[in-house]
Write a protein that binds this DNA or RNA. Sequence first.
DNA 1: TGTGGGTGTGTAAGCGCTTACATTTACTGG
DNA 2: CCAGTAAATGTAAGCGCTTACACACCCACA
Lengths: 343, 343
Amino acid sequence: MNQKNIATLVDVARRSGVSTATVSRFINTPEKVNKKTRDKVERAISELGYVPNFGARVMAAKRTNTIGAVIPTMENAIFARGLQAFQEGLHDHGFTLLVASSSYNPDIEEEQIRSLVARGADGLLLIGHDRNLKILEFLERHQIPTVAAWSLNPHSRIPSVGFDNLTAMRQIVDAALDYGHRHIGVISAHTKNNDRARERLNAVRLTLHERSVSPENLSIIETDYGVDEGSAAFEELIAQHPSLTAVICGNDVLAVGALKRARELDIRVPDQISITGFDDIEIGQVAFPSLSTVHVPHRAMGSAAAELLAKMITNSAPYRSVELHTSLVLRESLGPARTSVKS
Amino acid sequence: MNQKNIATLVDVARRSGVSTATVSRFINTPEKVNKKTRDKVERAISELGYVPNFGARVMAAKRTNTIGAVIPTMENAIFARGLQAFQEGLHDHGFTLLVASSSYNPDIEEEQIRSLVARGADGLLLIGHDRNLKILEFLERHQIPTVAAWSLNPHSRIPSVGFDNLTAMRQIVDAALDYGHRHIGVISAHTKNNDRARERLNAVRLTLHERSVSPENLSIIETDYGVDEGSAAFEELIAQHPSLTAVICGNDVLAVGALKRARELDIRVPDQISITGFDDIEIGQVAFPSLSTVHVPHRAMGSAAAELLAKMITNSAPYRSVELHTSLVLRESLGPARTSVKS
DNA sequence: TGTGGGTGTGTAAGCGCTTACATTTACTGG
DNA sequence: CCAGTAAATGTAAGCGCTTACACACCCACA
């Protein structure tokens, strides 16, 4: 026992009268240990309350069965569900998940990646593809199997498990245009370092262009993530552009914020203005009016990411990106454009 | 370099022409290294893309600057905000947070605790006080500073950073009674292994008792966590007990589910029935009608937990529990009891 | 009885770091 | 010019585990 009063493998060996090798075998490959010996060791372990030291184990064995995930934030539900599925999938493959968050800050993300690698993560889950070459090379050098989720980028050296944000967003923009909306506002998450936000925004631009709506009829605000931010952006948008008949939001949280402020301002949705989201998280279902949005298969994405990563780690197999598909969820908040500009 | 092509401290030492001790010092206490040496080492490190091996480091130094948290689930917002604050607080003290989730399963929680300890966590954040003696003794034996949040229990050997769930819940039950409600339904989270849920439920029973409302006028359903579960429970409750005028929910998510189902059933809230929540998370603000609930200072709790834990780790100081206070948030979903039993 | 092949165990060499202690170097003042 | 001291660096002993290899046994078979 050391000063911290923690039993080590040596203590267990001594107490049960066997060698350290046998104790180690008992822990890792019990079937290779004689039943009688097994019982002795087992008893010693429980009497001492022994727990193998993870660090020592990793050092000696070079395998951690740990995989790390770095997500932009824990403070919202967007990643929660997918992550939960990811965790469950990993668990089935015998991996433990460790989660760290980057607060949407690339430097912190890099720090977290390094920290996870230093901790011996056998693989990594990252969100999106926006990150600098240096960290990609770092991952390659360390040969850390990595997958990027919530995004799809065939040109990245990291395989994706996700959906095409551009295509996905076009679904709902098309729907809005079909409803006759021609003056459109966008509340987007910050597009810097965020390929998801950028592609969604591009989808709006592109779709309007294709359908011959002048860029002048498009007003964009980028803002931080959050309900209150969505509310503020909404108010600003309609104050400056009273002719807007639809506000497309980059995610459900912003949309719900917009919805809330609309209600506070006595603006009827969708009669006077339509509002749409993206992600299809619970908050959109319970909002009033309920939110029309783009459904993202969060759980399927998490599971698929777990599968792929497990495969990459155990087989070192050639991998392929997994594309998932989104679908339109039309609820109440999207309706026909009002015809007169004044409400 | 080993087979995995990863530079070690020895490689760095060789490349920069100094000893391993110096490299180690450069990393841990750069001020003890001569400027010129520092530059050499720095260059070697960046050329090699060296990252210290965490496991080795822990083994040699016995300190990880890591603290672990085990939360019941990632799949909801209740813990997210507090955890984010916790993480930020820890970061200021130089600690890294690792999060694991237990899916509300005590066995998994225990497994996660052990895993975190084996990984060398310097401290632990747990939710609530319900856990068996064995794991508490394990933590004591390993001398792992631990705090329990979201709950308050002066009798536990683990200090708390949280609020008294009983007192907190009484606030809103009192409010409901003040509004004249005498037939009350409760949608509670499962109370097994969950002291928060149990105390909140007790609060209802106790308050009714004190205010002379017959226990027969109280109907309780326990259910899993989730919006849909809340909806189902609500429907069941009012089907079986049409005389109910208020439904008290154990948390906001269940309450929002109830709210949603009420709307779907064309039951007007609060005119025909009142619904209350607990936690004050965003979803309650955007729900319609907006949710009357009990505000929990999530961020303050997270910060306070970080402070306390940091203090316990660095000072090994005598600690004291931190009590936080909740407050009533009266929004739209709670109103006067309807007078006629039929709507 | 001798040989071959399991099975079960033990011995000991690391894994990549930190750090106590020893040594060297660079100044200082007498 | 040298003892004395402080600063910088090096040497080497672990930290707690895994695992290659060696060894001891036991049984079956010839």
